[in-house]
Design a protein around this nucleic acid. Sequence first.
DNA 1: GTTCCGCATGAATCGATAG
DNA 2: ACTATCGATTCATGCGGAA
Lengths: 288, 288
Amino acid sequence: MTVSTVEKIDLFNQETESKIRADVILGNCLDVLKKMPDDSIDLIVTSPPYADQRKSTYGGIHPDKYAEWFLPITAELLRTLNPKGTFVLNIKEKAINGERHTYVMEMIIAMRKQGWLWTEEFIWHKKNCFPGKWPNRFRDSWERLLQFNKSKGFSMYQDEVRIPMGDWAKTRLKNLSETDKRRDNSKVGSGFGKNVSQWVGRELAYPTNVLTMATETSNKKHSAVFPKELPSWFIKLFTRPEDIVLDPFLGSGTTSVAAFQLDRNSIGIEIQEEYCQLAIDNINREKG
Amino acid sequence: MTVSTVEKIDLFNQETESKIRADVILGNCLDVLKKMPDDSIDLIVTSPPYADQRKSTYGGIHPDKYAEWFLPITAELLRTLNPKGTFVLNIKEKAINGERHTYVMEMIIAMRKQGWLWTEEFIWHKKNCFPGKWPNRFRDSWERLLQFNKSKGFSMYQDEVRIPMGDWAKTRLKNLSETDKRRDNSKVGSGFGKNVSQWVGRELAYPTNVLTMATETSNKKHSAVFPKELPSWFIKLFTRPEDIVLDPFLGSGTTSVAAFQLDRNSIGIEIQEEYCQLAIDNINREKG
DNA sequence: GTTCCGCATGAATCGATAG
DNA sequence: ACTATCGATTCATGCGGAA
């Protein structure tokens, strides 16, 4: 694992380098991206700094200026992403002056004009969300996980994230009735039929587009970003081992650690030197 | 409970009429709304027909024309809503040609230009979502519940929807299957639709903006679009007894039944006569 | 009465086929 | 090419009848 400067960005040569790499690049995200080759990244997972009215905070960008700031970056991400790759963007609009701001929606519409396909919106349901009470709203316990693609034929390995079937299956499949064994078409014209016998022996079901995960509260240094399970889930779903995962706002390195654990190469970009160092420490701890 | 024609729409006179009313109006939503007085409604809860490409289907509106169709209606809703009232809109965009359509986002932005405040977005997490498998996406298990207001000083009675905490989780956990625990931790801590009165003496907590509920699929006659707990929850949260609840797309009458059970007056508008009759039947069954 | 079990049903979406 | 229709896929829930 190396810390590169902005000057020198050569991607992995997998013929001469068989080991999994986790590069951490210190620098401004947009500058670094501009030096990266086209179509080279298999998956982008990131949680950019949220919009904030307070300028003092880390990367604070005013909500009204957010799209203006972020769109040049997504343009570079579009260029560097492999045509079969995916971009997963974790974001949530702030409540400002009693209202949810619309910058996220404006960004989705603008990104489509850049050429992105807005394939899906997953929900990250945060089990242990930030406590608090306000007179006009409840606690915010979910964030958006926006999936963008460059083409309809993107890679997706659904079997890698299957989950155990519900208990109902055990009893349901014990005794198959005659109608179960052949195709039984719905009577009400919904066009929906069933062939239950196909389920026999199946232990796993596919998940939905709602992910329920707790936030990680343990890490004191970096202000609670996403839990490692989050990038892990998308890395398993959208890449294969030795693919290249990019996080342009690496922070404490969660994405790179998740990628390394799953035998994927990774590139992380981070503008703050202390976070860079923290990310490297976290990755090295994993390398053992 | 009365069925009115479009000609005659006089709202409740609460001085001479003490009983709770549930009016069902047969007619085109926009026409009916135009005859209603300003600032007269305390809560609007509705689930308009979703965009659909097939013209044969009931209310099928092409996604590209959806905002154009719906915005004149929201303009009337804005006029008829009490300044302290709330509008809750249940909606979800379709996946078309491999992409999520952007008409819902465009509508939010357009409604703000009409003068609405977009206060919050609740998530309805549907536990039993529609089955199916596709190469490029998982099953869709959530819908939007968009909260709009006319002013920042809207009424909100948070205490009415508190949920028990403390030992509740323990007793509740016992009833969860092993699979539930592994798959969906959100079942613990949702407590949606519970009657608060039975938890007197226990510690109560406020809910979050993620609501976990199953759809109602069992009824053979006409399946309700959303479960009754959904309007009930918002009615408790945003109104007091004898307030007026409006559903401009009444369907099978779920909103009116929920309002009646909670001692709120209601007005339901429905364009199809058979649904009108069904709604009346459902309300009458409740009246006993 | 309880508990158990069989069964229909659903705001869906994609790809192929037909006009 | 472009649009409309059709067939295939799939899982959690609540009801009602049986044990």
